[in-house]
C-alpha cells in the first residue's frame, strides 16, 4: 500500500507573530519553525497504517516549501517514514492552494498513492483548502477533520469519525482517499535515536518546477493580501475588589448585567 503524508513547515504555536516593518508579511526573525502541528497526527496515522497493513507498504512524505523544510522532513523520516519528496523552487513564493495542489497532485501521481493523510489545516494561513483542491485534482474523495480512523480487511474502505459542531459524524469512504487529521486522532511518536540515525540515509527526492512540468499550474495568483492587521490593543482589565469572594461575585454579576449588558 502506498501511503502519502503531506507536510508543511510553519511557525511554532508558541511563537509571537508580528508584522514585519514593510507591512508585507510576518517578521520571521527569531521565530522557530516546526512541522505543522496537525501534520504530526497525519504522520503517526500513516505509520500506524503501514504497521497494520504490513507487506511492502511504504510511507512517503511530500512537502512543498523552502529549502529549510529539510529539517522537518528529516524529523518525519526519523519518526519512521520511508522516503520523501520535497518540492522546492525559489520561484514558489507563497503559492495559492490551487498552485500548491496542482504541484502536489503531479508529484503524488508520479509516485503512486492509495491513501493520503494531511493535517486539517496549516496553522499559518489557516485556509484548510489545499486538501480539497488536491482531492479534486486527483479525482478522489476527501474526509476532513477526522478523530478516528480504521480500514477494512481488504484495504478498500476507510471508516472515519469526523468532528462537526457538537457531534461526531461517521463517514465511510472508498480508497483512494485524502484524509485531514485533527488533534486527538492519535499520540504522535517521538523520533528514536536509531530512527534519527536511519533517517540520515533515507532518500529525499528534490523536485523543482522544471522537474514537475509546470503545465496546468496557474501562472498568476488569484488573490492578494492588501493589508496585514495586528489585533487592536485590549482595554484595561477591571480587577474587581472586595472584602471576600462573595462581595466580588456580586459586583461582577452587577457589572456584567448593567455595564457590559451580557446577562
Amino acid at each position: 500500500m502506498k501511503i502519502i503524508v503531506l507536510l508543511k513547515r510553519v511557525p511554532d504555536t508558541e511563537a509571537k507573530i508580528l508584522i514585519n516593518s514593510e507591512g508585507s508579511g510576518i517578521n520571521e526573525e527569531g521565530v522557530k519553525f516546526i512541522i505543522n502541528t496537525y501534520d504530526e497526527y497525519a504522520i503517526e496515522e500513516g505509520l500506524k497504517l503501514k504497521e497494520n497493513v504490513g507487506g511492502d507498504s511504504t510511507v512517503t512524505v511530500v512537502c512543498m516549501g523552502p529549502e529549510e523544510s529539510t529539517e522537518i522532513i528529516r524529523t518525519a523520516l526519523a519518526m519512521g517514514a520511508d522516503n520523501a519528496i520535497h518540492i522546492c523552487d525559489a520561484a514558489l513564493d507563497n503559492p495559492t492552494p490551487d498552485m500548491t495542489a496542482t504541484l502536489l497532485a503531479k508529484a503524488i501521481k508520479n509516485n503512486g498513492f492509495d491513501i493520503i493523510f494531511c493535517g486539517k489545516q496549516g496553522i499559518d494561513y489557516d485556509m484548510a483548502q489545499t486538501q480539497a483542491f488536491l482531492a479534486e485534482k486527483l479525482d478522489i474523495p476527501q474526509v476532513n477533520i477526522i478523530s478516528e480512523f480504521a480500514i477494512s480487511d481488504d484495504n478498500k474502505k476507510a471508516f472515519l469519525v469526523r468532528s462537526i459542531e457538537g457531534a461526531d459524524e461517521k463517514v465511510e469512504a472508498d480508497l483512494p482517499v485524502i484524509i485531514s487529521c485533527n488533534k486527538g486522532l492519535n499520540e504522535p511518536r517521538y523520533a528514536s535515536l536509531p530512527g534519527i540515525m536511519k533517517a540520515k540515509r533515507k532518500e529525499i527526492k528534490k523536485l523543482t518546477l522544471t522537474d514537475l512540468d509546470s503545465s496546468g499550474v496557474p501562472a498568476e495568483k488569484d488573490s492578494t493580501i492588501i493589508k496585514w492587521l495586528s489585533l487592536p490593543k485590549s482595554g484595561e482589565c477591571k480587577i474587581i475588589e472586595g472584602e471576600d469572594f462573595g462581595e466580588k461575585v456580586v459586583e461582577l454579576a452587577r457589572l456584567l448585567r448593567e455595564e457590559a449588558k451580557v446577562l
Partner: peptide, 10 residues
Amino acid sequence: VYSGKLFVEI
C-alpha cells in the same frame, strides 16, 4: 491568520 494572532485583508 496564524490562528487569530493577526488578520489580513485579502
